[in-house]
Amino acid sequence: MFDAPADRKTLVEVRDLKMHFPIYAGLLRRHVGDVKAVDGVSFDIFDGETLGLVGESGCGKSTCGRAVLRLYDITAGTIRIEGEDISTMGQETLRKKRPTMQMVFQDPQASLNPRMTLAGIIGEPLDEHTGLKGSARRDRIYELMDAVGLNRDFANRYPHEFSGGQRQRIGIARALALHPKFIVCDEPIAALDVSIQAQVVNLLEDLQDKFGLTYLFISHDLSMVRHIADRVAVMYLGKVVEVAAREGLYADPKHPYTQALLSAVPEPDPVLHDTAERVILTGDVPSPSNPPQGCNFCTRCPQVFDICRLKDPQSREIEPGRHVACHLHNEPQAAGETAA
């Protein structure tokens, strides 16, 4: 059930990724602390799979996605794409690597330049990385528009003339332009209508089959992640608390936070809805600039015990392909380490 796809090639390998944003305060703008948006995240993404990244708002999902593509200068950690370490690469070297990794953004309105035509938007990556000119460039643009189901007549229109779903297709076409292997989808459906969400997700799945794409699918919509992802990583306050294959995670969540998160998914059956046992968390997410001592979740965890408030749990593989960072699941080792 919890099958580890050990035979598959790792495309993206993220180890101990940290993205801290400094806070400056006072008259002299002194460095007084950091917002630890992403604080030691590790995961692998295998070739051709979809890794869902879920968590509540403000837990660092989007920052993590952007940091993996080096849209920020990361604080620490390594990111390997196709075995190549891009975490310390200069922007100019990175530029040559950009075609392999692309991004689809959350807000399709904001992610398209309002003063460029559709052809200009989809053509931009072609201008940057290929020498395509004139009719060859136009043919490639038409090809991409066909791939995402946009009418070729729309090539001269501007983003404001499209609906939300069409705009998101433009964003996807732009990401596909350079034959990428890895696409970070940063909540691509969050800003869309429910009926359009399904269209866009199906389009993403079709494209994955057609072009052999690998996705990091960031979302807070658990049912959608269940639909599209092969494996799921759950984030809480800048850390990944659990990584597991989809079926295992949804059937038997191990981490108390995952349990709480999954129990919040709406139940359509009214009878089950009334009898469902929900884990209701109390309190708010602590500030990422001042996370609690010990486990990040210890302030709200329903199963908290002493060691949680002292020591940060390390992520351990408790079953093949299943990593959990919780003291409940690695008591012996954790106790041993504290003694040592």
């Binding site: 593509l69 992610s111 931009e124 990385h129």
Partner: peptide
């Protein structure tokens, strides 16, 4: 800070062309 500028950066557009293509027209 708008997403279309971040999108341009994610496809490796150098700063000078981001300014000319995305910032100045807006």
């Amino acid at each position: 800070e708008r997403e279309f500028v971040i999108a341009a950066r994610s496809m490796g557009t150098p700063s000078r062309r981001i300014v000319l293509r995305h910032i100045l027209p807006n």
